Simulated assay, not measured.
Amino acid sequence: MLEHGGRLRAASLRYGIALANWLDLSTGIAPYGWPLPAIPASAWARLPEQQDGLENAARDYYGVSNLLPVAGSQAAIQALPRLVRNVTVGIVSPAYAEHAAAWQREGHKLLEISEGAIERALERLDVLLLVNPNNPTGRRIEPQRLLDWHARLAERGGWLVVDEAFVDCTPEHSLAAFSERPGLIVLRSFGKFFAMAGIRLGFVLAQPALLEQLAELLGPWAISGPSRVVASALLQDHAGQRVQRERLLVDGERLAALLGAQGLTATGGCALFQFCCTPRAAELHEFLATKGILTRLFSSPSSLRFGLPADEAGWQRLQQALALFAKECP
């Protein structure tokens, strides 16, 4: 199993700090949401049914005609490599590590490439996969460049797979509107923007034929009845989405400013996290953890990813801990 952010119980055991006393900035998940709808008893008692409105609500939210709900975009990440055989896959790196692991697991040839190497590598690829905005760097590639790459791949039956887990605050950068084009597959996460990672819900946007293959592979009842009720309501709550988007954008800028004021100028990021490259990443990660603040550490490059604090107390706690690090570990 690959390591991920959010392993709070493991951190609690390692550092001897109770779960309730942690400030978890390790995940890039929105730290606040909004009131949830009541769940009827029938959602618990009956098998889920597709005619309950979830698909329609999601189509409206993403602005598409065809999509497939999945048990978190992770389910699609693991299943997509099983729909093809013996292909060459280029993954723009660094990236969310589960992508590379899934394609390698199915025996495909994997090339980890930089953004600058895509043009040179494209003719050798059957599949180009990238995260946009990137996780963990926050780097964003403009839609037209992505569509140009897709067109070149699609000419010979290739795929462009774009993981848009962090794009909800900037939907103008999404390729959702183009997802019916042959060979274009867009993955969307529900839990990050809506602050509901535990619901385990994501969506695949693509041509109907590919979605049918994926649905057959994943099997029936992939999404629980209660999850479908909650997600349907939130996907239709346009006022709540607007408030959430505005707050996250403001807080993303605040986090970048806070880090910069403490000598940690962000080298990338988006509304949900900031990314800082520093040779002292491991040292700072350890120092913050001893103070009950969990960040996401990366070794290549040496860097930290900071998620958003949930409240003012969290903002002050992070600022004070960073100031203390600068004082005690100059």
Rank of each mutant, 00 (worst) to 15 (best):
A75F: 05
P133S: 01
V229Y: 05
A257S: 14
L288S: 13
S65H: 03
R124A: 08
P81C: 10
S227A: 10
R200P: 03
S93K: 10
Q207R: 14
C276Q: 06
L8V: 13
S302Q: 15
L304S: 10
I17M: 11
G219A: 13
Q244D: 11
A165K: 00
G307D: 11
L23V: 15
Q320C: 09
C270R: 15
Q244T: 09
L175C: 13
S232H: 05
R140G: 00
D168N: 08
V167W: 05
R85C: 05
A101Q: 15
Q207S: 14
N66L: 03
A231I: 00
A43N: 07
E98T: 10
H4P: 09
R317G: 08
S174V: 04
E3G: 09
F275C: 06
L259H: 09
P143K: 02
S224Y: 00
H238R: 08
E115P: 03
L235F: 13
R124C: 05
F298I: 01
L175Y: 08
P40E: 14
V243R: 15
V204K: 02
N134I: 01
A38H: 05
L324W: 01
S179I: 04
E49A: 04
F275L: 04
L234R: 06
L54F: 02
I185Q: 01
Q207V: 06
A30I: 14
A310V: 13
A11V: 04
L125V: 04
Q320D: 06
H173E: 15
G219M: 10
W149N: 02
I199V: 12
A281S: 12
A326S: 08
T27K: 15
R82N: 06
A313E: 07
S299M: 06
A75N: 02
L25D: 09
G33E: 12
L68P: 07
P309R: 05
H150Y: 03
P133T: 02
P143S: 02
V84P: 02
E123S: 09
R181F: 12
L23N: 15
V162P: 01
A102G: 14
F193M: 10
G16W: 08
H150N: 04
